[in-house]
Amino acid sequence: MSVHVYRKTLRDQRRAVVGWGAAVALLVLLMAALWPSVRDIFDADLLAAYPEPFQRLFDLEAMATGAGFLNAELFSIILPGMFIAYGVGRGARLIAGEEQDGVLEVVVVTPLSRTRLLLEKATGLATGIVGLDAVLLVVTVVGSIVIDMAIPIGHAAVGAVAMVLIGVQHGWLALAVGAATGRRTLAVAAASAVAVAGYALHVIGALVEAVAPWQPLSPFTQAIDAGPVSGTVPVGFAWLAITALMVVAAAIPLFTRRDLVTA
């Protein structure tokens, strides 16, 4: 089966993956380089100075380990934020962006079905995010070895998978909203709003007991609650994958049955 749109989607991401990959690598290496000095100052007294909910939210106790340090400093907000930003920006561009630029019109009037077009673009976006994630995994493992952070490869891989899942989920949401509406700004806005709401639920759920039962609904909680750099693969990963697939599936009938907007 020929997958020309998938290949083009990948080709279009080459430069972006390299650029974002460099940023991710720089960030991880910078943090890893900081680790030895943090480890030396982080003792029980400093920990006790933080209120208990904050200790829980940022998993401060774990800061004494390399994995815990990276989880707190990178994997809890900065890296998920970067993967979401990458996914949403790209996802909104793939259909709604091309449609508003007027370049999609001729592509749609080929024997390739709109369903196939959407699926190939979704797969291409996910592959791009996996590529970005491969950079993250390699740098985390290399950083851990060089700085002696003692992070097992398996644990680093779980953390990396969490970033892929949260990036793909939000990226596919932006792609789906764009496919359903043809409006790029709306796609970015909707996916960003979901990201902010998800993060708020994750944070408030940790701080406010009444909200705590709802916290597992947050994609952030699903992705990072177990670490995410850790030895356990949480059930939340399955939820992230399932909701991502559902969002794309829901967009198919909306995309195939609507009018294409003109540039």
Partner: peptide
């Protein structure tokens, strides 16, 4: 539509390409 697209050459009024 896909069967129609197979048999049609189409030029939009405001043609744009990558």
């Amino acid at each position: 539509p896909d069967e129609v697209h197979r048999r049609v050459g189409y030029l939009p009024g405001d043609f744009r390409a990558y």
